[in-house]
Design a protein around this nucleic acid. Structure first.
Lengths: 180, 180
DNA sequence: CGGATCGGTCAATGATACTGACCCAAACGG
DNA sequence: CCGTTTGGGTCAGTATCATTGACCGATCCG
């Protein structure tokens, strides 16, 4: 473990006047390795429940992501969905086309721009998305309850901070008004 | 850091009679969808930097995970590594064997049990792991600084809560004493 | 000695992603 | 009105990460 690099004056936003010692240490190497472990284990188990359901239906995580974001923003265009997922058109196609063929997702031409294909969930799609959601809800609820409301707020701030500009923009869009 | 379990009544979805304000709302549907989004975007961008480096070396995320956990626990057995990663022997082999052939990871027979292969990083392996670590450190440091120390503690508690039993055991082992 | 364990390897399969090229149809701009 | 741009779809080929099931050698242990 070489030079722990102490970064004392971290505090740019906040300025939460640390109660004594250990707060200045929070950027040390060990703390960051801890973060790596947390993210690896936590994310893996967060997705595990839904993955199990999906596996039984010849689908994968990518299908879930489409169901999730289309459900979150009914009427989203293919282009906007591509921007959120940050994958290629081809990768999306391999997942979106079957979802439409199997009646989970519905496509309607845009009203103002008829080149656009506006996406929405069918009842069947909404039901599957709901099932996946409920499963993950158990996991997240458990974690939230154990950790408490204050921890949840901290969790949100850190996760948001991990995002790059592109993701942050997409994220803020999603959490914001349902309209633009 | 054992589980502080402070679960105050869950509030069945809806019925949000916020007494002191926003604290009892934190289990509503929208809050959980927010968590899904945070985890998707946050985890993706957390890994993006390292993925970029790895891509230039004909390696992937799985190689990084091996370097990371072997670096974290030098002398770990193949079996224990399999337990941490929760993948199959075959999947590990496809990654571990090339890492050894290319001189990133070193194998030495166990002293007490000579069936075991104790794994450790070579200098070359440690250097690569370091490079990947530094890259992720930038991302995490940025997020930690923006969020502040209190948020970091909350982040940890929530991420740990997302883990299943198996992962939590492995995690506590990793964060605990280096010796067992 | 015999069974269990640790580690490695075979073959086949599937999910997710990539690149680059090419196409149609609709919109837009001079 | 025509040419270009944009939104969307699709072709073929490739890579990584994971799976299952079977089987083997070496070693440990009762």
């Amino acid at each position: 473990m070489p030079a722990p690099r102490q970064a004392q004056i971290a505090e740019s936003p906040e300025r939460s006047t640390p109660p004594a010692g250990r707060n200045l240490l929070f950027l040390r190497e060990e703390e960051l390795r801890l973060a790596q472990d947390l993210l690896f284990f936590g994310y893996r188990d967060f997705t595990a429940g839904a993955d199990e359901i999906l596996a039984g239906m010849a689908m994968g995580r990518a299908h879930h992501r489409v169901l999730h974001f289309v459900g979150r923003r009914p009427g989203i265009t293919v282009g906007d969905l591509l921007g959120i997922l940050a994958i290629t058109k081809q990768s999306l196609g391999r997942v979106l086309t079957p979802l439409m063929e199997d009646g989970y997702v519905l496509q309607t031409p845009g009203r103002t721009d008829r080149r656009q294909r506006l996406l929405a969930l069918t009842d069947k799609g909404a039901a599957l998305e709901r099932r996946l959601f409920e499963r993950q809800r158990e996991t997240v609820m458990q974690a939230y309850r154990e950790a408490g409301p204050a921890a949840v707020e901290g969790f949100r701030r850190v996760m948001r901070g991990l995002m790059g500009d592109q993701a942050r923009t997409a994220f803020d869009m999603l959490e914001g008004p349902p309209a633009p």
